[in-house]
Amino acid sequence: MDADEDVEETGGAARTVRLTESHAGQRLDKALADEMPDLSRARLQALIEQGRVTLDGAPVSRAGKAAPGLYDILIPALAPADPAPEALPLPVLFEDAHLIVVDKPAGMAAHPAPGNETGTLVNALLHHCAGSLSGVGGVARPGIVHRLDKDTSGVMVAAKSDAAHAGLSALFATHDIERTYIALTRGGPDPARGRIETQIGRSNADRKKMAVLKSGGRLAITDYRVQQVFGAPKKPGGAPMAARVACTLHTGRTHQIRVHLASKGAPILGDPTYGSGSPVQPVKDAIAAASLKRQALHAAVLGFVHPITGEALRFETDPPEDMRMLEILLADL
Rank of each mutant, 00 (worst) to 15 (best):
I75G: 13
P76N: 13
A77E: 15
A77C: 12
A79T: 15
P80M: 02
P80H: 02
P80V: 00
P80Q: 05
A81P: 09
A81G: 12
A81E: 15
D82R: 12
D82H: 12
D82P: 00
D82M: 12
P83Y: 05
P83T: 03
P83L: 11
A84W: 02
A84E: 15
P85N: 10
P85A: 01
P85Q: 05
E86F: 11
E86G: 09
E86P: 11
A87E: 15
L88A: 03
L88I: 13
L88D: 02
L88E: 04
L88P: 02
P89L: 14
P89S: 10
P89M: 06
P89Y: 03
L90E: 08
L90K: 01
L90N: 07
L90R: 10
L90G: 09
L90H: 05
P91D: 14
P91W: 03
P91I: 03
P91A: 14
V92I: 15
L93A: 12
F94W: 15
F94I: 00
E95S: 14
D96R: 09
A97I: 08
A97Y: 00
H98M: 07
H98N: 15
L99K: 06
L99G: 06
L99A: 10
I100M: 10
I100A: 00
I100P: 01
V101S: 05
V101H: 01
V102Q: 02
D103R: 06
D103S: 13
D103W: 09
D103C: 04
K104G: 01
P105F: 08
P105S: 02
A106E: 13
G107I: 06
G107H: 05
G107P: 10
M108R: 13
M108F: 10
M108D: 04
M108G: 07
A109K: 03
A109Y: 02
A110V: 15
A110Y: 00
H111Q: 13
H111C: 02
H111F: 12
P112Y: 04
P112Q: 08
A113Q: 03
P114N: 01
P114H: 09
P114C: 00
G115Q: 06
N116E: 02
N116P: 00
N116W: 07
E117K: 00
E117Q: 08
T118L: 05
T118H: 14
L121E: 03
L121N: 06
V122L: 08
V122S: 11
V122Q: 09
V122R: 07
N123K: 11
N123V: 08
L125E: 02
L125K: 04
L125P: 10
L125T: 02
L125I: 05
L126Y: 09
L126M: 15
L126F: 01
H127N: 14
H127E: 13
H127S: 06
H127Q: 11
H128C: 00
C129P: 10
G131N: 12
G131D: 06
S132F: 00
L133V: 15
L133I: 15
S134Y: 08
S134M: 08
S134K: 08
G135E: 11
G135S: 08
V136G: 06
G137H: 05
G137M: 03
G137N: 09
G137L: 09
V139K: 04
V139I: 01
V139A: 13
V139F: 02
